[in-house]
Amino acid sequence: MAKMLYSATMSVDGYITGPGGDMSWLTEHIGPNPLVDRLIRDIGALLVGNRTFGGDDPHRGTDKEGKPFGGGWEGPQFVLTHLAPATPVPGVTFVGDLMEGVAAAKAAAGDKYVNILGAEVARQCVEAGVLDEILVFVAPVLLGDGVRLFEHAGGARVRLERLSLTETPAATTIWLRVVR
């Protein structure tokens, strides 16, 4: 059975995008990382927020632009949105309901991970009790503004258990399990 994994690179002050959704800050922090290489092999499907799907790309202006993990991964993508485009996008299914998207992505992933991309979808998965793990790459930078890794109006306490902690020149990596 597929597990639901939220992965993101985050600044030390907790942001996964800069102001206005800017992802250019991430470009200098993308580099060889054996953990990312292993993770990509273990992803069976993506569950992506619409803002992330149509947003900025740290690979902007390169041949890697618009490709998940800069072209390092290919497979089924499920984008959570209430406004699907009129023109189909190859390999992408647009879904209007979180649980419908979770079920479809899990079915497509088989026994691999469904990788969640986007803070809003991750928050919804936490609230629905379907998020299993979180993988955070902490980049050595302060952004001061942007989209936070996790934000819940009024606060929310989500218990986590650390599975691993590793370091590379580009980031400190924390892999966590959601405690239910």
Rank of each mutant, 00 (worst) to 15 (best):
V138Q: 08
V141M: 01
L165W: 06
V158P: 08
H152G: 00
A156S: 14
T168M: 03
R162W: 01
A153M: 01
T172H: 08
V141F: 02
L142H: 09
P140Q: 00
L143I: 13
G155Q: 05
A170F: 15
T172A: 13
L163H: 01
P140R: 04
A156M: 12
H152I: 02
V158G: 05
E161Y: 01
W175I: 02
F150H: 13
P169L: 08
T166M: 02
V158L: 14
T168W: 01
L142W: 07
T168L: 04
T166Q: 15
G146P: 14
A171M: 12
V178Q: 06
F150L: 13
A153D: 12
T173R: 09
P169C: 00
R177W: 06
W175Q: 05
A156T: 04
S164Q: 04
V158T: 11
A153V: 08
G155S: 06
P169Q: 11
F150E: 03
G144M: 02
R177G: 15
V141H: 02
R159F: 00
V158F: 06
E161W: 03
F150S: 03
T168H: 14
V141T: 15
V147Y: 03
R162A: 08
L143R: 07
A171L: 10
T172Y: 07
R148W: 05
T172W: 02
V158C: 01
L142C: 02
P169W: 03
L163V: 14
V179P: 00
L142Q: 06
A156V: 03
V158A: 03
T173E: 14
L163K: 13
E167P: 04
R148D: 11
A156K: 15
L163E: 12
L160F: 15
S164H: 07
P140W: 07
L160P: 09
E151L: 03
H152E: 10
E161R: 15
L160R: 03
D145L: 00
A170H: 10
T166E: 14
A170Y: 12
R162Y: 03
L160V: 11
E151M: 00
P169S: 02
V141S: 04
V138T: 14
P169E: 15
A171C: 09
V179F: 00
R157A: 12
T168G: 15
G154S: 10
E167N: 12
T172L: 09
D145P: 00
L149D: 06
A170Q: 09
E151K: 12
T168I: 04
G144K: 05
D145Q: 10
L176N: 06
L176H: 07
L165M: 11
A156H: 05
L143N: 12
V138I: 13
V179G: 00
E151S: 14
E151V: 02
T173P: 02
G146T: 13
V178W: 08
T173K: 01
L176P: 01
A153Y: 04
G154E: 08
L176E: 02
E161A: 14
L143G: 09
A156F: 11
L165I: 05
G146Y: 08
L163G: 11
V178R: 13
V147G: 00
R159H: 09
F150W: 09
R148S: 13
T168C: 04
L163I: 15
D145K: 14
T168V: 07
G144T: 09
V147H: 10
G146C: 10
G144D: 05
R159G: 10
A156W: 03
R162V: 10
L149K: 12
A171S: 15
